[in-house]
Design a protein around this nucleic acid. Structure first.
Lengths: 219, 219
DNA sequence: GTGAGCTTGTGCGTTCGTGCACAAGCGGTA
DNA sequence: TACCGCTTGTGCACGAACGCACAAGCTCAC
């Protein structure tokens, strides 16, 4: 499994991938680090260093093979196989996420929806019937679900996280505005919409030339 | 306007704020850096250093005044006044964001919704009628809108960003999976849901003890 | 007034990320 | 074969972030 890839690099790989997919669709076969850097909105040296962590696949004087690079990045990110996802919490956000096509098309099919409200159980969203949270364990095992998305209110988030971990989910993406504690072995990422706006508020107030001080989760 | 606050600190201020609001609701008047660190899921020394950028308001041997600290953080983030927001793109995500109450309740009321589809214009979502993108300029000026949220497909994102900047929006939050170019004076933050999942994929595959590498661990 | 016990504020060493700059290396041309 | 132009891979130096560890300073008890 190659060497360790730095966190900052891992966060950029999906962006390179997106750019490469676009490039591939235009028929391009090779790409230079400078061209890719331009597409991804980063520094060319950074691109080269990032890609070097995947192993060395560029050809000096020529560039990188687009398709080969795509496969390499896909492998590093574990996109060679589909990763089934469950969404917990079918409020506005949860329903929107369920409808959002960007997950399935990128290898993360949503295979189950869960909520705690009896009223919602049984309703069909985007072709999937909502199940009750009490059945979470069975559902996760049945579909071999690897990723749990938490779209519940903050109060329920920790309980849901614990349930997901107990059921055997391997990583968690949380939209709940709260601190979550999970075992070290379960990667956790958080997206808090209100927090993002507040951060913008600071830079806006300053009218500073900053980039928003982003974690640079995407681009 | 105090001193410069480091990016990493700015990103944590909203989390401290969230913890303090919770604390205040329990009636607590003072809080130590250790207690706050615990609530926010970070190191105590980091909390103290972060807060020191706001100016020094802690009392040795005692701690920090909860209410005062809340006001200081609010000031730093520019939350003393309401910041009107417009959402561009009324697809699934846009509609979910429009319904999401977390914005208004934290000082970012959604005052306008915009879409390019004639079919959607006029529809009412969460009490607000959808306007046409061509009227963006007027709308932004009329409501003195400061923040634009982009929830359109990737292809439209850059055009929308340009339009928002031209209309006078001061900062942008984008959910579109694409690279955006805006003037240095306009803070921009990006959230890409598929990217988040792909990053999780890397760490999951590794089953490393890392925490998803980014923004910070538990929060 | 004096001492004990906390808690803050910060200096400092360490680690991580960034990007410049250049040598190494490949392909094409004569 | 020899040379030229282009692009990769990386050494290096700089800066940001982190967290330990400790001195400074406040409150309370007696």
């Amino acid at each position: 499994m190659a060497r360790e890839i730095p966190d900052a690099t891992v966060a950029r790989l999906p962006i390179y991938r997106r750019s490469l997919v676009e490039l591939a669709s235009t028929g391009a076969e090779m790409v230079s680090s400078a061209a890719l850097a331009d597409l991804a909105g980063v520094n060319a040296a950074k691109v080269r260093k990032d890609l070097s962590y995947l192993g060395t696949y560029g050809v000096r004087g020529v560039g990188y093979d687009v398709k080969f690079l795509l496969r390499q990045i896909g492998d590093a990110l574990g996109l060679d196989i589909e990763t089934p996802v469950v969404i917990v919490g079918m409020g506005n956000l949860g329903q929107a996420l369920a409808h959002y096509g960007g997950f399935s098309s990128r290898g993360f099919p949503i295979v189950a929806l869960v909520d705690a409200s009896e009223a919602k159980v049984g309703q069909v969203v985007d072709g999937i019937a909502i199940s009750h949270i009490d059945d979470l364990d069975t559902i996760v095992k049945e579909h071999a679900i690897a990723v749990g998305i938490i779209a519940t209110p903050a109060e329920a988030a920790q309980i849901v996280a614990d349930a997901l971990v107990a059921a055997g989910v391997r990583s968690i993406l949380s939209f709940a505005p709260s601190v979550l504690h999970v075992p070290e072995t379960v990667p956790l990422r958080k997206v808090d919409l209100a927090t993002e706006l507040q951060i913008l508020g600071y830079y806006q107030q300053r009218e500073s030339p900053a980039e928003g001080g982003n974690t640079d989760k995407s681009a």
